[in-house]
């Protein structure tokens, strides 16, 4: 397992379950909260699939992701560098990082490390730096 940092200029996507979407359909703070047993927040590295368009990147994500994607869920896209800077600046957490955590089934799988399941402030900050939102299907 490489666990190398995902470059700051690159992007990650997070699958947001329907129960975490606000009534306006937008990802909310809970879209970025961890379960107590989760050591990091699971995301996917979009540029892992090369220099292709966003829709093609997302198609690859949908193809490999090991989750049952609900049709009413959303994929939220965040820029790595902006996310890390924003969380660091506004939470004081210095060890926040995005690492590549590939699995045999999901090669672009990555994780946001450095916060726990009760660090709601970080989840709120992550929800504020969502750049793009896409359907799951």
């Amino acid at each position: 397992m490489s666990e190398k940092p995902v470059p700051d200029l690159d992007h990650i996507s997070r699958y947001c379950k329907p129960t975490t979407l606000g009534e306006d359909g937008q990802p909310s703070r809970t879209s970025f909260m961890l379960k107590p047993s989760e050591p990091f927040l699971s995301v996917n590295w979009l540029e892992y699939f090369g220099d292709i368009g966003r829709e093609e990147q997302l198609a690859e994500i949908r193809r490999y992701v090991q989750l049952e994607l609900a049709s009413t869920g959303k994929l939220a896209v965040l820029n790595v560098g902006k996310t890390l800077k924003y969380v660091h600046t506004n939470s004081g957490i210095i060890n926040i990082s995005v690492l590549h955590e590939p699995t045999p089934e999901d090669p672009s799988h990555s994780g946001i490390h450095g916060y726990g399941h009760e660090d709601d402030l970080v989840a709120d900050l992550l929800a504020e730096v969502v750049q793009e939102i896409y359907p799951t299907k």
Binding site: T19, T20, G22, E23, R29
Partner: peptide, 8 residues
């Protein structure tokens, strides 16, 4: 605005 956490 009401949503659920990962622990419901």
């Amino acid at each position: 605005d009401v949503v659920l956490t990962p622990s419901n």
